[in-house]
Write a protein that binds this DNA or RNA. Structure first.
Length: 512
DNA sequence: TTCCGACAGTGGGGTCGCAAT
DNA sequence: ATTGCGACCCCACTATCGGAA
């Protein structure tokens, strides 16, 4: 199959907003895809590269290449070239990667170039990623979409499922079962405003402490232990403490879901940045481990011995977890069997307050009867975290991309200093409706003092109320801190800039 | 007919490791 | 030694489609 066929399909998918049409276009292409090409073709149309990391990003792709007149690139040849790009290392690697990519682009037509640039840069913007690729695959082979999706969740790889389905048809779905040693996409949580809302939505539930660390999925088969991240990267080598902890469990075979976090001598959590840095360290793991040990805390169990627990309700999975896991390695939780009962509510609120007092991020509320929805951001897990707000001044705004092209989008936020100037604390583009984008573009252009095509600087007069999860240490911003997960709640046209929150107020939040 | 679940898009900050400067 | 870049952790929120209620 030619890359041109894939690029044309991508254009067709992008050209319609109807999901059914996108899926139909994908299915048409998959029907004419050979099994040997299936993994590459479907991964490309899901907006990803089979190589995952190539070492090539936007910066490397900047200089334009003269396009070829006729399409002649085969999909498998493109894949081979990108595998070579990914394999380059050592001195001269950047130049060598550039040469390979330039060669590839100059052999591509204009349409193919556009597709490749989006694909490699990670911004295909065709309105379809893995979710719709799965639907298209299901339609192409005549299998129920839910079953194909489940196979991808359990098999961990869209490409492998596509190849098997195109080679052998729907019977191949039976191959993709939960297996110890093969990572499963983890279940994710939605957000709730507060504990009451979460309990109202879920009914009988468990309230668990939410630790601010790194999600891990731990597979144990006898002495063999493997650890995977949320995106199924294997990080076993970096987490010797977790390997040890897994081997100490009272079980031979298991798949566990949990969080690793660095705790201080008193058992209080260290800042997320420290845990993250530790988990990211690959070169001197022994040294890093000695300096900043990690603790695994498990909250779910997907397999125990030869039993697959995915479809069992939360409370049964947790009972099994409790059977094989010692208390300190298990998440703290409170079961709220009857959330309508005022006493239960009071106990839940007290539990959540205690979790925060012990320095943790918040709570997760989980429906007691819900199965483990691998790979889904289901409504049966709800996270609740405290929210801070500040009234900050817009110092500048950046021109948006994609559907925000032509609108001022990303706001630079400042806090007031005693001398009447402002200190930048970070940026945000979140929380804005289309109407707000429209409005702020007009208002900010009215306040503009400069525009370099990327950033529009403005007179510091517009005040916005910003929500955020807390402060984190920053080497980028002058106050030494920045806002974590900042988002706009509303404009404060009623509030003059000289009454915006001060740097002093912001810094007082440290440690809070 | 209305509601709501799932998806895609739009980017935020930090950190590590590698290669270039 | 420092800097730029890519990759990957954490993530919130809105718009949209189309099936469920």
């Amino acid at each position: 199959m030619l890359l041109a066929d894939v690029a044309r399909t991508s254009r067709q998918v992008a050209a319609t907003s109807a999901r059914s049409e996108k899926i139909a276009a994908l299915a048409r292409l998959f029907r004419r895809t050979e099994p040997a090409e299936a993994a590459v073709v479907i991964t490309y149309l899901a907006g990803k590269l089979p190589q995952r990391r190539t070492g090539v990003g936007w910066s490397t792709l900047r200089q334009p290449q003269k396009p070829a007149a006729e399409p002649r690139l085969a999909v498998l040849d493109v894949d081979e070239t990108l595998t070579r790009v990914a394999a380059v290392s050592g001195t001269g690697a950047t130049a060598a990667r550039k040469r390979l990519v330039s060669g590839l682009l100059s052999a591509a037509t204009k349409e193919e170039q556009g597709f490749l640039l989006g694909l490699i840069g990670g911004e295909l913007r065709q309105g379809a990623l893995e979710g719709l690729a799965v639907e298209g695959l299901a339609e192409a082979v005549g299998a129920p979409a839910a079953e194909v999706r489940r196979a991808v969740m359990l098999g961990g790889s869209l490409g492998a499922v596509a190849e098997a389905l195109l080679a052998r048809g729907p019977e191949a779905l039976a191959d993709f079962r939960l297996e110890v040693g093969r990572p499963v996409l983890p279940m994710l949580a939605q957000s709730a405003k507060d504990l009451d809302e979460a309990m109202d939505r879920l009914g009988p539930c468990a309230v668990e402490e939410k630790l601010d660390g790194i999600r891990v999925q731990v597979h144990r088969d006898g002495a063999d232990v493997r650890i995977y991240t949320r995106t199924l990267d294997e990080i076993t080598e970096r987490l010797p403490e977790v390997v040890t902890a897994a081997r100490e469990l009272a079980v031979d075979r298991a798949i566990l879901d949990g969080e690793v976090i660095s705790l201080d001598a008193e058992g209080r959590p260290r800042p997320f940045q420290e845990t993250s840095g530790r988990v990211g360290s690959r070169l001197d793991v022994a040294g890093a481990s000695a300096a900043l040990p990690l603790s695994p805390v498990f909250f779910d169990l997907l397999v125990v011995d030869d039993r697959d627990l995915l479809d069992l309700p939360t409370h049964e999975r947790h009972a099994e977890l409790a059977r094989i896991t010692p208390g300190p390695r298990r998440v703290r939780r409170l079961v709220a069997g009857d959330p309508a009962d005022p006493e239960t509510r009071r106990a839940a609120r007290e539990f959540a307050a205690d979790v925060l007092a012990r320095g943790h991020e918040g709570v997760l509320v989980k429906a007691l009867e819900a199965p483990y929805g691998a790979g889904r951001r289901g409504a049966s897990w709800l996270k609740v975290k405290p929210v801070h707000t500040l009234d900050l001044v817009v110092l500048a705004a950046e021109w948006g991309h994609g559907r925000r092209t032509g609108k001022l989008s990303n706001l630079h936020l400042g806090a007031r200093k005693p001398d009447g100037t402002y200190l930048m604390l970070g940026k945000t583009f979140k929380g804005l409706t289309d109407a707000m984008l429209e409005w702020q573009t007009e208002v900010l252009l009215g306040l503009a003092v400069s525009d370099d095509g990327w950033v529009v600087r403005v007179r510091p007069e517009l005040v916005v109320e910003v929500a955020f999860d807390g402060l984190q240490r920053s080497s980028r911003y002058p106050a030494g801190v920045t806002l974590r997960f900042a988002r706009v709640l509303r404009y404060r046209e009623d509030k003059p800039a000289d009454q915006a929150d001060t740097v002093e107020t912001v810094l007082a939040l440290r440690g809070a």
